[in-house]
Nucleic acid binder design. Structure first.
Length: 193
DNA sequence: AACCCTCGCAACCGCCAGTAC
DNA sequence: GGTACTGGCGGTTGCGAGGGT
């Protein structure tokens, strides 16, 4: 049996207090990131190591960009999601200052709904066969319908843009990156640099 | 004013891959 | 090669805020 990542007894859960944040920041400034399992004890925090890591990565890190996503960031997320699927950490890696959790939340709360309203299946970026909403057909007509994948029209003219892989019918809604298409040298992803 | 509902976001959970022994 | 440990990831949950009735 796998041991739990931490002793659940005596560890705090839920929202972090300012004091806890400060302890974590101070400790990482002094000792750097890493060894999350032993960090809570060393830093005097009654938290799980995983919880500390998450708090630092998603909220306390100094290089985090907070606030609304710019339109170009949103476009990039849509494009990357079409290529990579729900690989949020990879997508976030292409968005400086954004975290995987933030991108994931933004996708689920904003972009996903937006695509659905446009008649686009957010899972595979294809137009719905039968529109889930009455106005979906007219909305989708604003897109370039020549594309199998329904990217915004201004991407369709890019001569360098190619799909990582074709969707083989309905059993592959979230194409996973292969070692080949994850390669920095792959022209598919070079487009986004 | 009180209640209900929806939404956005922070945080948790469980699983998996990599690594050390 | 097998096992244990750790970090990282994606899915999901829970809570607070804000809007509507």
């Amino acid at each position: 049996m796998r041991k739990p990542c931490c002793d659940k007894e005596g560890t705090n859960k839920g929202a972090w207090s300012k004091q806890e944040d400060q302890k974590l920041i101070d400790y990482i400034h002094l000792h750097g990131e890493g060894c999350w399992r032993s960090l809570p004890k060393a830093a005097g925090l009654h938290r799980c190591g995983k919880s500390c890591r998450l708090r630092w990565i998603n909220y306390l890190r100094p290089d985090i960009k907070r606030g609304n996503f710019a339109p170009d960031e949103e476009d990039l997320i849509i494009k990357l999601h079409a290529l990579l699927g729900n690989r949020w950490s990879l997508i976030a890696g292409r968005l400086p200052g954004r975290t995987d959790n933030e991108v994931k939340n933004y996708w689920n709360s904003h972009i996903r709904r937006k695509l659905i309203n446009m008649g686009i299946d957010p899972n595979n970026h294809k137009l719905y066969q039968t529109s889930p909403l009455p106005h979906a057909a007219s909305s989708s007509s604003r897109l370039n319908l020549d594309l199998t994948i329904a990217f915004p029209a201004h991407y369709s003219s890019s001569p360098t843009f190619t799909l990582a892989q074709e969707d083989d019918d309905n059993n592959n809604n979230n194409p996973k990156p292969t070692s080949e298409n994850m390669d920095e040298s792959n022209p598919t992803l070079l487009l986004f640099q």
